Amino acid sequence: MTSRVQLPLVLTLGVLAVSCAAVLIRFASNAHPEHTPLFSLVVAAGRLTLASLVLLPFTLRGLGRQKLSRRAWGFTLASGVMLALHFMTWITSLSYTSIASSTALATTTPVWVALIAWIFLKTPPSMQTLAGIGVALAGGALVAFGQDTTLTAPNPLLGNMLALVGAMCAGAYFMLGRQAQHEGVPTQLYAGLAYGAGALTLLPLPVLTGVGYQAPLEAYFWIAMLALIPQLIGHTSFNWAMKRIDPTLVTLLILLEPIGSSLLAMLFFKEFPGSQVILGGVVLLLGVAVASYPTRSRAQTA
């Protein structure tokens, strides 16, 4: 398959896969009899554990063939820890706020990618990027402080803040993963190691917080679907693309996720966001699109 066909196909598949994540998480959480927000730790740990177990044979084979440098190990493991923090905060946010608000705020990832590149890679953003960041922050404020009256949003402000922290962690995860792959870690091996590091970070937390791993089989079915579709298909697709094109272009496509997630939330949960959330989401996505859209100089560099 030529790269001209392969790249758009992989990215399209990745967007469709991650759009299912919020709905699958809500199904898993609703299957727990106590509906406790702490069950999000089980969902996050289960998602990464199952994904890393599926990839384990390929990971072991890759380690046998590829000798990684200390820097490569460092970037890979750090990326996995940031992925764990991303899931811990973002999945928990879905217990407090609406799917539309949570996924809209989670897509500010490109803003944090640009800021991380500025601070750590000494790549200053253009005026276009800065303007887009300003618009995105204004939209994010509208979403974060919008009054959400849906039954599934018991504490919108807390949930929105958790989603925003999750987006910051996701930005660090993507950039660390990009650095790991530039250090020579193949995409498949990187995915297995990063998902495994994230799983090991999260696995003790349900026990330490007292929620435990006891849950109906239905909950684990949805967790398995979460590991298979958004994680193995969605995230791995984006990690594969990160090495081949400008990372901001990849994260730009993630802006399509809130649209699909919101439509699924309306279909399955009758969850209709308020007017301020919709307005804020539109402004936020517009700002992120402006911040992430490649200028001619950036396109030449990519």
Rank of each mutant, 00 (worst) to 15 (best):
L11S: 11
V283N: 00
W90K: 03
S126W: 05
A219S: 15
F39T: 08
M88R: 01
P206Y: 00
S95F: 15
Q231G: 08
A241E: 00
S262V: 04
S297A: 14
S275E: 07
Y293M: 01
P258D: 01
L286R: 09
S292Y: 08
M127L: 14
D246G: 13
S262D: 04
P273N: 00
M168W: 14
L158T: 07
A194T: 14
T76V: 14
L94H: 08
A170N: 01
E34A: 15
P33G: 13
V211R: 09
A170V: 12
L77R: 06
F120L: 12
H32Q: 12
S19C: 05
I233R: 13
L249C: 09
T248F: 04
G212P: 08
V113Y: 05
L252G: 12
L7P: 14
F272Q: 08
Q214M: 12
F174D: 01
L94V: 00
L217A: 15
L137A: 02
P125Y: 10
G166S: 01
N30L: 15
V18D: 03
R70N: 13
Q276Y: 13
L63G: 00
L189D: 05
S102A: 07
G177N: 10
S69P: 01
R296S: 04
L121H: 09
S95I: 11
L228M: 14
A17Q: 01
N239Y: 10
V111Q: 13
M266S: 09
A117D: 15
Y220C: 03
P216L: 02
G166T: 00
Y96I: 00
A302D: 06
V207L: 00
E257N: 07
L9P: 11
G192R: 12
Y96R: 05
Q214I: 15
A191N: 02
L193K: 13
E34M: 15
F58A: 09
A44L: 04
L142R: 04
L189N: 01
L7V: 12
V5N: 12
I116D: 05
L50M: 13
A265C: 11
Y195E: 13
F87P: 10
M88T: 11
L63R: 07
L202D: 02
L53Q: 06
V135C: 00
A72Y: 08
L55P: 11
T248I: 02
Y213L: 10
Y220Q: 07
A131Q: 10
R178N: 13
A299V: 05
F39C: 03
F221S: 13
L226I: 07
V250C: 11
L176A: 01
M161S: 13
I91L: 10
H86W: 02
F120V: 09
V288P: 06
T36W: 15
T187V: 14
L200F: 01
V111A: 12
R298D: 11
A114L: 00
A28W: 06
L13W: 10
G210D: 06
G234K: 05
A45T: 03
W112I: 05
A31F: 07
S297D: 06
T295C: 10
W90D: 05
M168I: 15
